[in-house]
Nucleic acid binder design. Structure first.
Length: 493
RNA sequence: AGGGCGUUGGGCAAGUGGUUAAGCCAAUGGAUUCUCAUUCCAUGAUCGCGGGUUCAAUUCCCGUACGCCCUCCCA
């Protein structure tokens, strides 16, 4: 019988969910679901100083928003709880006591200051920084003396002298470390709380994790953890160290990096869709077999294969994300699209909070004009700008606009069109469109020379959606005012 | 400084001991269109560098450069 696959995403609540976190969570999730196994979320909150208020909540909230579901965690419980490390202190105690009793660990009375100085000395002499092992063989008298001083010890793991630690990484292949490159590391801090490297091992064992998929930055922690597994006589899980995600400068994405939008919440606020983000993030450091790039969550579950995790760093390509999100927006149901975009216009003060049915309908039509080209929700504000800018007569024209209006034909076209528009008793794209043809016949102008003058004067911009519909939505009043104002100015000049 | 890992066109990325070295994004050029957008077509890599193994290497081995990660009483 094969063991049930169990994997976990183990965030520390030191911040909100960012791209890197999300990627790790997604891969674990896909791996578990693909194998029909369990996906667990465990909160690693042993660094109380760095924990931030709301961090844990935010992690779960945005994971859920992205479409992940988990089988065990702080919020829904499970058979292997508690799932918050600070609630597992008693459990850890039993295990580190065991290591102490068996001589795998010892008490270290060095102060942080002493250690820091030691490190700096080593660096200054060009040596590899690392703990010297000073407290490895303390006599009972020395210990008593330290205790009498009121010093509180940390617990350090006694790293074996001359041992090769190796493992088969699902991504990197065979990886080897030598124990002499690892110095005795702290497993329990002065305050009695275990460190990450210790707690992970105990938890992963107790929670029966079969695989550990995590970021590559953990690869050098792995030998430490393996030594702990061995000290306990436990079988270590299979490791998979995923590529880092790097920014445009090829640096690891860090929470403090401002060159890139990091947090899932920010993407949500900008109007990125969870499906698109999920899709995009999954393609960071992993690739499917064929040529397709757009996949649903269920398709990913079916396809996911850890063999195809890539070894080299993935760069976060914002423009591709925008493209991908645009693909999802294009396929979105119209109602959803409208519901997503309108709030951005309201927030920008361009639309009233409370709208009449007519206003709603108008806004809907405006917004729908851009459905195919919108990359993300917030972009609607700039894209639809021409429907909210009520300037009658532009005073400053761009070079192109000047060129468009300077032609002799421009005024003819404009006055002819203006006259036709005024004769209209209704105002819809359907009745406006034929008028352009009428003007075409009358002035013998067509194409660029026909449309552009009208567009520039009536809409105030040389770019925009289909002219007749744009004019309809701009409204009769505004369009006529603009044309009149322009023509009048032409005459006075 | 030590250890680990990586290196395929601007970005992502597939792939193989002998191929025209996929595909996507971006860029540029072109076609269509009143413009933007859309759509379509086109354009670009001697696979970091040097050596070796081999009839043959981007693919295997060694070295080197560069990059990144770790070396914390952070995770």
């Amino acid at each position: 019988m094969t063991e049930e696959v169990r994997v976990r995403y183990a965030p520390s609540p030191t911040g909100f969910l960012h791209i890197g976190n999300a990627r790790t969570a997604i891969f674990n999730y896909l791996f578990a679901r693909h194998a029909g196994g369990k996906f667990v979320i465990r909160i690693e909150d042993t660094d109380q100083k760095r924990n931030v208020e709301g961090g844990e909540e935010s992690q779960l909230k945005f994971l859920k928003w992205l479409g992940l579901e988990w089988d065990e965690s702080v919020d829904i419980g499970g058979a292997f709880g508690p799932y918050r490390q600070m609630e597992r202190l008693d459990i850890y105690k039993k295990y580190y006591q065991e290591l102490l009793d068996k001589g795998f660990a010892y008490k270290c009375y060095c102060t942080p200051e002493e250690l820091k100085e030691e490190r700096e000395q080593q660096m200054a002499h060009g040596q590899t920084p690392g703990y010297s092992g000073k407290c490895r063989h303390l006599t009972p008298e020395q210990i008593a003396a330290f205790e009498a001083e009121g010093r509180k010890p940390t617990l350090r793991f006694r790293v074996p002298e001359d041992e090769t630690i190796e493992f088969n990484d699902m991504v990197k292949g065979h990886v080897t470390f030598h124990s002499s490159d690892v110095s005795d590391f702290v497993i329990v801090k002065q305050n009695g709380v275990p460190t990450y490297n210790f707690a992970v091992v105990v938890d992963d064992h107790l929670m029966k994790m079969t695989h550990v998929l995590r970021g590559e930055e953990h690869i050098s922690n792995t030998p430490k953890q393996i030594m702990l597994f061995h000290a306990f006589g436990w079988q270590e899980p299979t490791f998979a160290h995923m590529t880092l995600i790097v920014n445009e400068n090829h640096k690891k994405l860090s929470k403090r990096d401002n060159s890139i939008v990091q947090f899932i919440e920010q993407y949500k606020n900008m109007g990125f869709l969870p499906e698109a983000l999920f899709n995009f993030i999954t393609l960071l450091g992993w690739s499917p077999k064929g040529e397709e790039e757009i996949f649903s969550r269920d398709e990913f579950i079916k396809l996911f294969d850890a063999e195809r995790l890539s070894k080299s760093p993935a760069m976060f390509d914002k423009s591709k994300l925008e493209w991908m999100n645009g693909q999802y927006i294009t396929k979105m149901p119209e109602d959803d699209y409208v519901a997503m975009t309108i709030p951005y216009l309201v927030n920008a003060g361009l639309l009233p909070q409370e709208m009449t049915d007519a206003q709603k309908d108008w806004a809907r039509r405006v917004v729908l004009l851009y459905k195919e080209q919108l990359h993300y929700g917030a972009e609607i504000v700039q894209l639809s700008d021409m429907f909210f800018n009520k300037t009658i007569l532009k005073t400053e024209l761009t070079k192109d606009e000047e060129k468009i209006l300077s032609g002799e034909q421009a005024s003819d076209v404009l006055s002819a069109f203006n006259r036709e528009l005024k004769a209209l008793d209704s105002w819809t794209a359907e009745v406006i469109a034929p008028l352009i043809k009428v003007v075409q016949k009358e002035t013998k102008q067509r194409g660029w020379k026909l449309y552009m003058p009208i567009r520039v004067v009536a809409t105030g911009s040389q770019h925009g959606p289909e002219l007749p519909e744009a004019l309809e939505l701009l409204g009769r009043d505004l369009v006529l005012k603009r044309m009149d104002a322009y023509l009048e100015k032409q005459q006075t000049v």
